[in-house]
Amino acid sequence: MLWYVLRRLAYVLPILLGVSIVCFSLLHLAPGDPLTAVMPEFASDQVIEQIKRSYGFDKPVPVQYLLWLFNALSGNLGLSQVANRPVLDEIVPAMVNTFQLAAFGIGLSLLGGIGLGLLAGYTRRLVTDRAITTTAIIGVSVPHYWVGLVLIAILAVTLGLLPAMGKAPPSPGFGLDDIRHMILPGITLALIPTGIIARSVRATVIDVRKQEFVQTLQANGLPPRRTFLHVVKNASPTVLAIIGIQLGHLVGGSILVETVFAWPGTGYLLNNAIAYRDIPVLQGTILVLATFFVMLNFLVDLAQPFLDPRMTRQ
């Protein structure tokens, strides 16, 4: 087991390193000189040199990268060029908001995806299965920001049932108003993962139920609820892997949804950072989100052997 953890970790580290290199390169890949914003107009060559040196641009690129990485690891992601405050101070509250919304969306998509998937898998080729499969395809295919706009138009603007924008004003504790603000963006965010999870749960359940051991369970007279447990445990490793990826997408892909609903999370932050060319914020946010995505899948990998004992042996 320890060997398995170490081997998984050995896969994760190079990926994280790659992520950091991509984030760092943003600075150099983005069109335009990053120093234009801070450079005084008509600066003399000497001043330019001095500014370059103060920002560390005089050093070779690999050294710049290592310095940047070292700073990032110690929590120093630099200064936001727009807000002129540490990037970390921008990211942390945004992260909290994003996770709050994501947790809500994840809850919805797990509940909906697993529930619908099981129902479809157990009623294969019947009306319920067909209805669920079709809905899932629509859910996956329709752009979610567009659904968000439609939801706002109907439920918020026309019917006035739910707030259209933003987060509830800060108040002590977590109340009904917080939830009301999360419903529309939460549903929008959950749409695609729900469809994908439902489809993979359905396919996996159908696949598992065809296996011979299910007949052994029936031949031994086990009640349906026990057979169901066997099916669920056999289906869980596959489904968990897909859920892991979907959750990562859900957090990372919230940029459009958060923009549509003006939700002050990382997606919103990213959107603004792109608009204002605030590269340190962009770098920091992407680094944090990508690390989250990688770590999430690492955790999924770690959980797999507990569900399927065959995984540790290779």
């Binding site: 011979e212 086990l222 056999n234």
Partner: peptide, 25 residues
């Protein structure tokens, strides 16, 4: 009732024990 006699009155052995046993228990 059928379930009650399966396993207690009548049992079955299958051809391929690898697939006839649940791999994750």
């Amino acid at each position: 009732r059928l379930r009650a006699i399966r396993g207690t009155q009548v049992s079955m052995i299958f051809q391929e024990p690898m697939t006839a046993l649940d791999p994750v228990f």
